[in-house]
Write a protein that binds this DNA or RNA. Structure first.
Length: 378
DNA sequence: AATATTTGACCGGT
DNA sequence: ACCGGTCAAATATT
């Protein structure tokens, strides 16, 4: 096991070195690719140590690996439902993506020098207040909640309702501000690359606009507990406040699930994806300043490292990694509205195409992934 | 038919 | 009691 840890640490070291060199070498594509390859090789080696059988194990006797074999990572409190699995499927692409600028636009495949670290370090502001609950439930300013009149629709008996709803789970939380995507007369909610299913909308006290609640579309199959809230700002109707909560434990998104074994996609990587999928110059323009809100995680380098490994985002600069406190944290990042594109990653393109269509055919997609599990896992 | 969205009711925390 | 978050039936969409 020491070898595995050494290998992971090596990958992290290489990634860290690369991060430091990026400002000077960001235009050296070949060089960057070589360095990325080295990083990937380090992690792949670790993966192979952890899974020496290459996924040929028997699957009949074991459920899908919805939970890791070890305790939940401390960065994400609560019930630990956000822990990762089935992550080593496409490690190279996943790990390379952030270095290569995520999913650059085909119209500007090489003009997107940003990587997550630089974007976050240069432009984003991250608010790292500890969270009390999953979505920061609690009281806010006064004022009546706008409620709809009751309909004639009958409600099931109380005893038939779920008796024990889970609330107040600690967890990693991050709030980002996303400009409204305006296409014609319609304002589209921000697209972060994941597929979400809306499960609720609520008028919020003191807010002009209702808050929408989304969960990962693939929650049912993967038990993916990722959720998000989307709400327009009162003082800026053209900006959405998106609060992410929970790690994506599914492999069914279009995002770079920056996962090594036991490393789920996190809200941080979600934001990373949004950043990386932002090929416009407005990225830096919009997300200017506010570094004072960035948690100085360099004060806790060891913790940052371990958290990074657990998060599977070892390429992430320590300043960001440190924003994920063991007992949960929230972050706030300004990002531009972003589309997504995966032109440089044909394999991911295929998956993306499948998964995007999967938003309309979740069950079939789940079936596909079930087959993938059958071939590979357990 | 399958899936997603809407929306009033319910539940837990404060 | 109030409020935010979630459930789930009804409805809409594909």
């Amino acid at each position: 096991m020491d070898d595995v840890l050494r290998q992971i640490d090596e990958g992290f070291r290489l990634a860290r070195d690369l991060m430091e060199e990026l400002p000077a070498a960001q235009n050296e594509r070949t060089y960057l690719a070589d360095r990325c390859h080295g990083i990937v090789q380090a992690y792949v080696a670790a993966i192979r140590m952890l899974h020496p059988h290459g996924g040929t194990e028997d699957t009949a006797s074991s459920p899908p690996p919805l939970r890791p074999p070890h305790p939940p990572s401390p960065h994400f409190g609560g019930d630990g439902s956000g822990s990762g699995q089935h992550d080593h499927e496409i490690p190279q692409l996943d790990l390379l993506r952030p270095f290569l600028g995520g999913a650059p636009s085909p119209s500007a495949p090489s003009s997107f020098p940003h990587n997550l670290g630089r974007l976050l370090a240069e432009s984003s502001f991250i608010n790292t207040t500890p969270v009390v609950d999953a979505f920061g439930a609690g009281t806010s300013s006064g004022g009546p909640v706008r409620r709809q009149a009751s309909s004639s629709r009958s409600s099931p008996p109380v005893q038939l309702r779920q008796q024990h709803r889970r609330r107040r789970e600690n967890g990693e939380r991050m709030t980002i501000m996303v400009p409204v995507q305006r296409t014609g007369n319609t304002d589209l909610p921000p697209d972060d690359g994941y597929t979400w299913r809306k499960y609720g909308q609520k008028d919020i006290l003191g807010s002009r606009f209702p808050r929408s609640y989304y969960r990962c579309t693939h929650k049912n199959y993967y038990g993916c507990e990722a959720k998000k809230k989307v709400q327009r700002l009162d003082d800026d109707p053209f900006t959405y406040e998106v609060t992410y909560c929970g790690n994506h434990t599914c492999l069914t998104s279009t995002t770079p699930l920056l996962t090594i074994p036991a490393g789920p996609a996190t809200v941080a990587s979600t934001a990373a994806n949004m950043l990386n999928n932002s090929p416009t110059d407005s990225a830096t323009a919009l997300a200017a300043g506010h570094q004072d809100l960035f948690m100085p995680a360099a004060e806790h380098p060891a913790q940052a490292l371990s958290t990074a490994i657990q998060l599977g985002i070892s390429w992430m600069p320590s300043t960001l990694v440190g924003s994920s406190a063991p007992e949960g944290s929230s972050s706030q990042v300004n990002v531009p509205a972003s589309g997504r594109d995966t032109a440089e990653y044909p394999v991911m393109d295929l998956a993306d195409a499948m998964f995007n269509s999967g938003s309309r055919g979740g069950s079939s997609m789940d079936a596909i992934f079930l087959a993938r599990h059958d071939r590979r896992d357990t």
